[in-house]
């Protein structure tokens, strides 16, 4: 009986080892492919910045650099917006924020669904205010990140 038991364990070990080898040979190329994709993720076209409250967000580098060019001692609100699919409809967002005297500049990134708003340094920017203003124009704000520009 014990001989049969050892034989079974032996079979099990061989089976598990084979399974592991096959699994590894399938998973490894996928993992290496994934690693290549990660390496190709070169951040040339977008950057992951960190907001003052620690949240990460995703913006277009060129657009963001153009936006902050010439700005200093300000806060930039990066707002993720749903429903912002058309330039003509997004015009109202720019108009709404430009009525605020603490706002210096507004930009809309239709492709990423982002609105960039430059506020004076002393402004307290809260999500409720931003989302109310976005909703006045008919879109939905989903996320806010605030950056300080020194």
């Amino acid at each position: 009986m014990s001989g049969i038991y050892i034989l079974c364990i032996g079979f099990k070990e061989v089976f598990v080892r084979k399974l592991f080898t096959i699994g590894l040979s399938v998973i490894a190329p996928i993992m290496s492919l994934y690693a290549e994709v990660e390496e190709e993720h070169d951040h040339l076209n977008h950057i992951h910045k960190e907001s003052i409250d620690g949240d990460k967000f995703d913006v277009d580098t060129r657009r963001f650099n153009e936006f902050i060019n010439g700005l200093s001692d300000m806060k930039v609100a990066v707002v993720s917006v749903n429903g912002m699919v058309c330039d003509f409809c997004a015009r109202g967002i720019e108009k709404t924020f430009k009525r605020n005297s603490e706002v210096f500049k507004v930009d809309v990134d239709l492709g990423r669904g982002k609105v960039l708003i430059a506020f004076s340094q002393g402004t307290i920017i809260d999500f409720e205010y931003i989302s109310r203003k976005i909703l006045e124009n008919g879109q939905t704000a989903t996320k806010l990140a605030v950056l300080e520009i020194r």
Binding site: N82, G83, V85, C86, C89, G113, G138, Q139, T140
Partner: peptide, 12 residues
């Protein structure tokens, strides 16, 4: 009068 609006990341 707007009866219904659905905003998603890519559509309205």
């Amino acid at each position: 009068y707007l009866l219904k609006r659905i905003n998603t990341k890519d559509s309205q």
